[in-house]
Write a protein that binds this DNA or RNA. Sequence first.
DNA 1: TATAATAATGAGAATGATTATCAATAGTAA
DNA 2: TTACTATTGATAATCATTCTCATTATTATA
Lengths: 157, 157
Amino acid sequence: MPGRWGKGPASWWHGEFKGCGYRITIPRQIILKVLEESSGHLSAEDIYLKVYKIYPAIGLATVYRTLEILVNMGLVSKFDFGDGRARYELIQDIKEPVHHHHLVCTNCGRIIDYTDFLEEEIELIKKIEKKLSAKYNFEIKNHTIQFNGLCDKCSNK
Amino acid sequence: MPGRWGKGPASWWHGEFKGCGYRITIPRQIILKVLEESSGHLSAEDIYLKVYKIYPAIGLATVYRTLEILVNMGLVSKFDFGDGRARYELIQDIKEPVHHHHLVCTNCGRIIDYTDFLEEEIELIKKIEKKLSAKYNFEIKNHTIQFNGLCDKCSNK
DNA sequence: TATAATAATGAGAATGATTATCAATAGTAA
DNA sequence: TTACTATTGATAATCATTCTCATTATTATA
Ligand SMILES: [Mn+2]
Ligand SMILES: [Mn+2]
Ligand SMILES: [Zn+2]
Ligand SMILES: [Zn+2]
């Protein structure tokens, strides 16, 4: 995640975090660190276990509390892929999010990220958002697009 | 839901149901009836309560079991809108599903169905599915598209 | 730096949706 | 009708997530 750190000790998110009245704590720093260094789709417990290795005093409730804040601040996306637990992933770049969509295998649960949209896809989404905003007077903040089916391994049984 | 019933007593779904080795039972008939007569986004408990009025002997576990079958058969869609309980809705027409997408208010939880896609939207989805299938060797069965934001009431505070 | 105010924490209990268990019942084919 | 067994309802068990609360850590301030 290049370009996010200044020269000082403060991380890219410290400013926004403090601006919202939140304190910079050890648990929060480590949770963010783990999110930064992991590839996506981690469950709260996944994150807890990774933090635990660095900081065994961590509590699971703190992980949940921190994730809730991050989701509300728009720094983390929360997904439900149907396996009974929520999944979290850091939004890579706040200014210009590297948005991506998901392919979810309904058999083995594998999740494939794809970002190589057709140019049209991006255009169309903007157009649809505009149309829906107008028609339903709805202020659209973000969207989720997911294709479900069978991955290569599962469709070849 | 016109055009689904023959002249006999059997409902449109009886054939497919039996074909899968499932028995036609009173609880299942009433659950389907409730799904047919309700507008979408019902939780398992919503369904349980509606069935209960007609058939008080119903058990909640039976509702869950039946819904699981219906989802697996592709007769019912299951969604998670982030309020901690799954939502179910009958797919209106199996042959030519009246597919729709959702606008979800992140403040009050209101859900708006929209089906009035731009013609381009439908075309593009087909194109994307084809591209993704080829690239990831993924057999796409269905998709979910959801826009999140604030509904008119909530954005006017 | 020391202090006060209070946000944040971790442990553990509580919640609540969903699933599993099991003996009794009902649907089906013969 | 009978025999077979899928299905059921009650209820216990699971398990992710949230809540409670006494303790601790962070921050602004003096
Ligand atoms: Mn992803
Ligand atoms: Mn709907
Ligand atoms: Zn798979
Ligand atoms: Zn709303």
